[in-house]
Nucleic acid binder design. Sequence first.
DNA 1: CGATGTCTTGAACCACCTCAAGCCCGGTGG
DNA 2: CCACCGGGCTTGAGGTGGTTCAAGACATCG
Lengths: 192, 192
Amino acid sequence: MDGWAYLYEILEDGRRQILDFSLPGALIGFQPHAASELTYSAQALTSISVCSFSRKRFNDFARTYPEMALRLASIAARDQYLAFHHLSNIGRRTARERVANLLLELFYRARVQSDVAPGDSIDMPLTQEQIGDAVGLTNIHVNRMLRDLRLAGLLEIIPAVPPNRGGTLRILDPDRLAEEAGFVEDVVLDEN
Amino acid sequence: MDGWAYLYEILEDGRRQILDFSLPGALIGFQPHAASELTYSAQALTSISVCSFSRKRFNDFARTYPEMALRLASIAARDQYLAFHHLSNIGRRTARERVANLLLELFYRARVQSDVAPGDSIDMPLTQEQIGDAVGLTNIHVNRMLRDLRLAGLLEIIPAVPPNRGGTLRILDPDRLAEEAGFVEDVVLDEN
DNA sequence: CGATGTCTTGAACCACCTCAAGCCCGGTGG
DNA sequence: CCACCGGGCTTGAGGTGGTTCAAGACATCG
């Protein structure tokens, strides 16, 4: 309902992949076939407030209100769609494109759910290491890419310090950045 | 209902990312919010037979049979789960691990839906370039990794030649390969 | 029999990683 | 108040995993 979190998976040897970021309105942990355990988990980036459901009662509810179940399927499909875009991003783009793409995505996603003027800045409580783990890069290389993007006059980013402090992103030239990153805005459309 | 296909996305400049492989039983193209266009498409790898639904009638059907809608949500959630694993694979694993992981995943997925004995070989009508596009590598490097895995006595793979001809994969030592790839079998559980 | 597409291998290159050092800042304890 | 510490940012230098370029082999197809 409020705040940011991220979903991640840790590999055997400690490597971490961030799978998605959860902004207000997100549905996480939905897994109808109760048999299997989830192999990924979630971590809050800010103070967050959530609304939790009992899995069983949630399923019963969906069964009696099919419109609800369809909506559920719709949300899952959209999340999968987003995951597909992350796949293309990580699998086939350069480091620079990857971070630009991620930042644009977060920028627009943050904007749809809380009206922010274009060119404005948003709260983005991410550390460079987290950005790296989301796009498959080293924190160090993320740092260099951010520097380059900053020097190119495309964005301003002020770092997040750990205990809930700050972290701000301002996209100075959304169109040019989107051009460079091959970013398409529709990816991020509202889940309605 | 029969045959293999893959879902893929083409970037502006022609780079291709394969997002998922569709085996018999898969549900593809489900996108309830009819507004937006899909930015990815599908391509058959073999002769396939499919069963198609009108989107509207499908939604109506789900509305009257809520159990069906829930099942839909369940499938979508599972597909998302799979996409997450692909993200970890591409984002955080080495080339060798990536191809090993993909081959193991396909091997087990092919096995659950058509009973194949363990250690047996399966039809796998993939070209090395397609493997590369699925795991974010060059066809050339995929070739080297396959050679290494073959020389390590982990698998045998015979290539697929384009018009529906052949393509076979035999995993010689599934456990050792899974160990090396960090592969967990549950990922691939039946969608029931 | 040439054309096409894939597999295969070598050699050179480069994008990104690893290692290492220094900085800044906020928090903590003396 | 200051010394210290930890975590994140920043930058440099060197190494490497994977790419790019190039060439050849082998099958299938018309």
